[in-house]
Write a protein that binds this DNA or RNA. Structure first.
Length: 491
RNA sequence: GCCGCCUUAGCUCAGUUGGUUAGAGCGCCGGAUUGUGGAUCCGGAGGUCCCUGGUUCGAGCCCUGGAGGCGGUACCA
């Protein structure tokens, strides 16, 4: 009985999710390993938590009946709502609150793993992606914030980003709050609208921001976005803040000093930035690596103090156009998050690296090549009765630390070489009847062959000569040494 | 969520005012080549023309509704 056409299951995956094969999969692990090693070195302890949490623990209201999956993947279990975590910070808050009594405080942990968001996917935006976070819970010292920035910059360099290829932008929500206070934007809706407007500086420019602060703005598609409805003086105040010269941390502090006036909240934010600056100077983090930038907002509502954003400033030209990578991580201080569980205010700060994004950038910038895996040497299987011999050869190569596999299909030699070619194998190990008689194996240098063949035309004779040239017979006992030599040879 | 464009082979696409059996290039499989990757030549496999309902003697093409993709915008804990 055969499966009818209509009963076949479609081989497809849900939108917003991706498969990764080979180096694409391994690259993420290697980035996590490199970043995690930096966090470990700074004394952070690794934490693992479950992928699923109670929905209310994630700080999300119960999904309403019409749209139970708005933003987050949720389902009901024994009457209670469960959700896939959408970041690593909310699970940390839950863990810290749950284990509070037994933890050494301040509690410093790092964590990695996939997170899920049920949102419209786009290019470079998926519904599952990996984050790598570090957080300090139980310290309100600005030094903890400075440490996050310095450590994250070390992490970026650990994955190959050069020192002049990234920049951290730092601000404090308290400064923003001070500004909002001084222009009389009291209610939360107006404050949020102003912050969203500032957040769009990159995309819509200063004129766009000014429009969004005032009456609103019509974009190219004809869509109208209502503004925050500030008066002219209010717009000017905000614009002055977000356009402050950011070349040095000291000059920003100076500028803020001038613009902030008497706002108590703003003063507190400024004090915070001073504390961060002092520690960054001690850690020798330069103005170019970490700037104070009053236009940095970060969307997340839970931030209460310092906010950070890591941006890759390197560009690569693709299809004749420069491609910018933008933000590869962010974080900040969230002093109220843990209070949801304990009722007690616990100061905390953290930083999150978007691993998937960083890997994508790494690949396109060519930074990941040092991490790339060498493809395996392929041992051809020319005689089904001698599989044991072929596996013995591959095993010897593996024992010498060389990636090696034995061909397991049933095809002829030509197809096996095509297989090796497709796998990007550097070498094919051949032992058929001819070699067996002589007690040798043939090593074929596929990389060299590919290089030579690329310059050949239709000349079949030259091709045959090339074939002879790129392969050599070696005694069976010297296979490992000869493979090592061939792999080491420069092309 | 809103606005615009798009959907034909694994991929990129062609397809006449609506007319037999829907095509090309690339890729894939095989042969020319007794045991050798590329190139060349020959052959082969591969299709729910996104789905649905309709108009028509007849729909890949026209009409209704829907889904999916791309771009912009909004949201983003």
């Amino acid at each position: 009985m055969s499966t009818s056409e209509s009963k076949r299951v479609a081989a497809e995956k849900p939108r917003g999710f991706i498969d990764r094969l080979g180096d694409a999969a391994a690259a993420e692990q290697r980035v996590v390993a490199a970043v995690g090693a930096v966090y470990e070195r700074w004394g952070f302890e690794q934490l693992e938590t479950s992928a699923i949490e109670f929905t209310e623990a994630l700080g999300k209201f119960l999904p309403d009946l019409d749209r139970p999956n708005e933003g987050v993947f949720s389902f009901q279990d024994d009457e209670r709502w469960l959700s896939l975590r959408y970041d690593l910070t909310a699970p940390l808050a839950r863990f810290a609150a749950e284990e509070w009594n037994g933890l050494a405080k301040p509690f410093r942990r790092w964590q990695t793993g996939p997170v899920w968001r049920n949102e419209k996917p786009g290019p470079g935006r998926f519904r599952q992606f990996t984050q790598c976070d570090a957080d300090t819970v139980g310290s309100d010292n600005p030094a903890a914030d400075a440490e996050m920035v310095a450590m994250a910059s070390e992490a970026l360099e650990a994955v190959g980003v050069p020192r002049d290829g990234y920049a951290f932008k730092i601000n404090s929500r308290r400064i923003l709050n001070g500004v909002l206070e001084s222009i009389g934007a009291k209610d939360d809706r107006a404050r949020l609208t102003v912050m969203r407007a500032i957040d769009k500086l990159d995309r819509v420019g200063i004129e766009g921001v000014a429009a969004l602060l005032g009456k609103g703005r019509k974009d190219e598609s004809g869509d109208f976005t209502p503004g925050a409805d500030l008066d002219a003086a209010g717009v000017k105040t905000v614009v002055d803040f977000v356009t402050l010269e950011t070349t040095s941390r000291a000059s920003v502090i100076e500028g803020l000093e001038r613009l902030l006036g008497a706002s108590e909240e703003g003063r507190a934010g400024l004090k915070e930035l001073r504390g961060i600056d002092a520690v960054l100077n001690g850690l020798k983090v330069s103005d170019a690596q970490a700037r104070f930038d009053p236009s940095v907002v970060r969307g997340l509502e839970y931030y209460t103090g310092a906010v950070f954003e890591a941006e890759l400033t390197m560009t690569v030209v693709e299809d004749g156009r420069p491609v910018r990578f933008g933000s590869v991580g962010g974080g900040g201080r969230y002093d109220d998050l843990i209070a949801r569980f304990t009722g007690e205010r616990v100061p905390a700060t953290g930083f999150s690296i978007g691993v998937s994004r960083l890997v994508a950038a790494q690949a396109r910038l060519g930074l990941g090549e040092a991490f790339a895996q060498t493809p395996p040497v392929i041992v051809l299987a020319l005689d089904a009765a001698r599989m044991g011999d072929y596996f013995a050869i591959a095993s010897e190569l593996r024992a010498a630390g060389i990636r090696a596999e034995t061909y397991l299909g049933s095809s002829g030699m030509k197809a096996q070489l095509k297989y090796a070619d497709k796998r990007n194998a550097p070498i094919a190990v051949i032992q058929g009847g001819n070699e067996l008689e002589k007690g040798v194996v043939t090593l074929k240098d596929l990389r060299l062959g590919a290089k030579i063949a690329a310059n050949l035309g239709e000349d079949r004779e030259a091709y045959a000569r090339m074939r002879e040239q790129v392969q050599q017979e070696v005694p069976r006992g010297e296979v490992v040494a000869a493979v090592q030599r061939m792999l080491a040879a420069k092309l």
